[in-house]
């Protein structure tokens, strides 16, 4: 039988959990920020769909039109759906932006208190994210972003 000297110290275990929580919140923060951004900049989502569609045509050397004959109309329908999604986020932007602002703050707290590892790159990314979201919120309150 293998002899182990591992001490399941509760503090270390809790610390690892807090770090995990920080990483989860970091991932969610990025997505929620993108959702807010797609609400404000509705063309971002539409442009993304067009870019993906264009890449599919190029990669398949145009054969995608043979495989999916109505590819063009599918493409345009997706673009119109993205506009609807953007409109939904824009309507509820005052709910989404505070949520998107709280998540990176919690994530940052979790990562900063980790004594075992340094998460410099994540913390820098979160700081930038928080700054952008504060600017977005100010822009919405002032009325620069409509």
């Amino acid at each position: 039988m293998q002899k182990s000297y591992i001490t399941s110290n509760g503090k270390i275990e809790f610390n690892a959990f807090i770090t995990r929580l920080g990483k989860i919140l970091f991932n969610i923060s990025i997505v929620s920020w993108l959702l807010c951004l797609s609400g404000i900049l509705s063309f971002v989502a539409t442009a993304a769909i067009f870019i993906i569609g264009f890449c599919l045509i190029v990669v398949s050397f145009g054969t995608i039109f043979i495989a999916i004959p109505n590819f063009g109309s599918v493409f345009l329908t997706s673009a119109s759906i993205s506009t609807q999604i953007s409109a939904f986020f824009l309507e509820n932007i005052f709910i989404f932006i505070p949520i998107a602002l709280i998540l990176p703050i919690f994530s940052m707290v979790c990562l900063v208190i980790d004594k075992q590892n340094k998460h410099t790159s994540r913390i820098i990314a979160l700081s930038i994210l928080i700054a952008i979201e504060i600017l977005m919120l100010i822009g919405l309150i002032v009325g620069v972003i409509k």
Binding site: Y5, I6, T7, S8, A16, F17, L21
Partner: peptide, 19 residues
């Protein structure tokens, strides 16, 4: 010198569930 694994903890199932 040891290396702690998250799955070695006593409350690993609880933390995994919450996560």
């Amino acid at each position: 010198i040891t290396r702690f694994l998250e799955l070695n903890g006593k409350l690993w199932w609880l933390y995994a569930l919450i996560s």
